[in-house]
């Protein structure tokens, strides 16, 4: 199918609704003001995808889950290490927590997993309410590693049918720290190619 500018607007709205709900959840969890950027929807090559969020070698905290149901796809929540440290320190009330520690505290990792669970859950349930489609997220996996290594896990399905990926990218940030790349958290929603038609149909656009 051909993606028109109307389609792109719909995908932006999806990113908007999803991330707004996730930002609210995060704000409630932390008791802090969380802001979000206007969503980006782009068709990018795999190489370009790897260069998002600071580049393929940048070490990040990545939460990844697969979406099953009416729509299939991959979803990532990516946080720069410094910002992830701030969030988790506040969540577990432990100022010594640091993803650079070796080993990283189990409690912190478990809190990160739960944070990912809650945020992706609010993103996807908002999306499900909006489209009235059934979305079943898998339990999220957590990795602290190079961005490229993390994100390529979500490209496997897509790479079988395409050399490009449509990525719905929304970033959120803590008000007090500004919105530079170093502190932005990113939601990347990567629907599998055959799922786009389902999304558009559900919203009355073909």
């Amino acid at each position: 199918m051909k993606i028109t500018s109307l389609h792109l607007d719909i995908l932006k709205e999806i990113g908007n609704i999803g991330a707004a709900h996730a930002a609210t959840s995060l704000s409630n969890l932390l008791g802090r003001k969380i802001d979000m950027r206007v969503p980006n929807v782009n068709m990018v090559s795999f190489t370009e995808m790897m260069e998002l969020a600071g580049g393929s070698e940048t070490v990040v905290v990545g939460i990844y889950l697969r979406i099953e149901g009416d729509v299939e796809g991959s979803m990532f929540f990516i946080l720069p290490i410094g910002q992830a440290n701030r969030f988790i320190k506040r969540l577990i009330h432990d100022e010594t927590f640091d993803f650079s520690n070796n080993p990283v505290s189990e409690l912190g990792l478990s809190a990160t997993q739960e944070l990912g669970n809650i945020l992706s859950g609010s993103y996807l349930s908002a999306l499900s309410d909006f489209t009235r489609l059934k979305l079943y997220p898998t339990v999220p996996g957590l990795a602290v590693d190079m961005f490229g290594a993390i994100i390529s896990s979500g490209l496997v399905e897509i790479s079988q049918v395409s050399d490009h990926v449509i990525v719905i990218n929304t970033s959120i940030f803590e008000d007090d720290y500004g919105d530079s790349e170093e502190v932005q958290g990113h939601f990347f929603l990567l629907p599998d190619p055959e799922s786009f038609e389902t999304i558009f149909k559900a919203l009355g656009v073909v």
């Binding site: 697969r66 898998t138 996996g141 990795a143 993390i150 896990s153 496997v156």
Partner: peptide, 16 residues
């Protein structure tokens, strides 16, 4: 050839 995430899904692509 690493396995970056451990998932409980039967999808073959997870063992890629």
């Amino acid at each position: 050839g690493a396995q970056m995430f451990q998932f409980t899904t039967d999808k073959d692509t997870m063992r890629i």
